[in-house]
């Protein structure tokens, strides 16, 4: 692809010229990776919001009390901005920008509820809903209602829109993989890779609609590099990755999140002091997570912390 533009793109990139030059002249230290206390003021839906330098537009939206849908963003992972459901309109930019990763710059004017934004969000939700099983994706149906998403309009009487259709992979007693629910948010790959675990047992393979999360040559997990930290499961937003305990309860129609309590405690194994959240249903632990804002774990655990609780129930 040596050419990708229409005139639109040309405009886009030409308007970006100012960015290039201003970056080149103003950037003396390393780009805003470290959040300093210097404040940046931007306008969101007509309101002025001050955020620390280096904060994203998404963080500014939060500060302004504007809720933003997202699938691929998580507090404990590097933003990959692939789901595009968080896009907002930035004045002066031809395309919409991902609020999860775009750094707020002084004077930016952002709109989060224009027709363009609503349209893009609606379409992204429809695209996902028409391709994969979102039945266990929390929070998304709320947004589908807001944006009036109609996931069925892609199929016609004699034609079904192509869906991701994969059998559930159950290869061990700890967690299952159901890629017919996968929205390819990359979170699991990041958690397995250099955002946390550095095991790199899984990666995105293939291309386009056929892209899948996979081990090498689709090897079974016990035959892969997987060390069963379960950090991929913890960050999965759709239930494509699921602890076996949860999966079994769901299969038995006994999974009742509304009846569950979550208790924060500390792992009983080594001396690092990882915080655990024990999800308890009917006086039994049904899954273990870790708070992603805890300085020790950032939400990540090892196999013992994640699965080593089972002795509690004999």
């Amino acid at each position: 692809m040596s050419t990708t533009d229409t005139s639109d793109v040309t405009t886009d990139i030409t308007t970006d010229t100012s960015d290039v030059t201003s970056e080149a002249t103003t950037e003396t230290s390393d780009v805003a990776e470290t959040i300093t206390e210097t404040a940046v003021t931007i306008t969101i839906d007509g309101r002025s919001v001050a955020v620390p330098e280096g904060a994203t537009i998404g963080a500014a939206c939060n500060a302004a009390g504007v809720n933003t849908p997202t699938l691929c963003w998580a507090e404990n992972l590097t933003p990959v901005n692939v789901c595009r459901v968080c896009v907002v309109e930035l004045e002066g930019s031809r395309a919409l920008v991902p609020s999860c990763s775009r750094i707020a710059e002084q004077g930016m004017v952002i709109h989060t509820d224009t027709e363009r934004v609503r349209h893009s969000r609606r379409m992204v939700l429809e695209f996902l809903g028409s391709s994969v099983d979102l039945s266990q994706t929390s929070d998304l149906h709320h947004w589908m209602d807001i944006y009036d998403a109609d996931c069925d309009r892609y199929s016609e009487d004699d034609h079904d829109a192509k869906r991701v259709d994969e059998p559930v992979k159950i290869q061990d007693e700890l967690y299952i993989r159901d890629y017919s629910k996968c929205v390819l948010c990359y979170k699991c790959v990041e958690a397995c890779g250099d955002d946390a675990q550095h095991t790199f047992a899984i990666a995105v393979s293939g291309r386009g609609f056929d892209a899948r999360i996979s081990t090498e040559f689709d090897a079974s997990l016990p035959d892969s590099a997987c060390v069963y930290c379960g950090n991929c499961v913890a960050v999965c937003p759709t239930g494509a990755l699921q602890f076996k305990t949860e999966y079994d309860l769901r299969q038995a129609e006994q999974w009742r999140p509304e009846d569950q309590t979550v208790t924060r405690t500390v792992c009983s194994y080594c001396g690092v002091g990882c915080n655990l959240e024990l999800h308890v249903q009917d006086e039994r632990i049904v899954k273990v997570t870790s708070p992603s804002d805890h300085s020790v774990t950032s939400g990540h655990l090892c196999i013992k912390g994640r699965f080593g609780w089972q002795y509690v129930h004999g």
């Binding site: 196999i303 013992k304 080593g308 089972q310």
Partner: peptide, 11 residues
């Protein structure tokens, strides 16, 4: 192993 034997580890 008194705790860790409580779960089946694939590794």
């Amino acid at each position: 192993g008194v705790q860790s034997r409580g779960y089946v580890s694939p590794i």
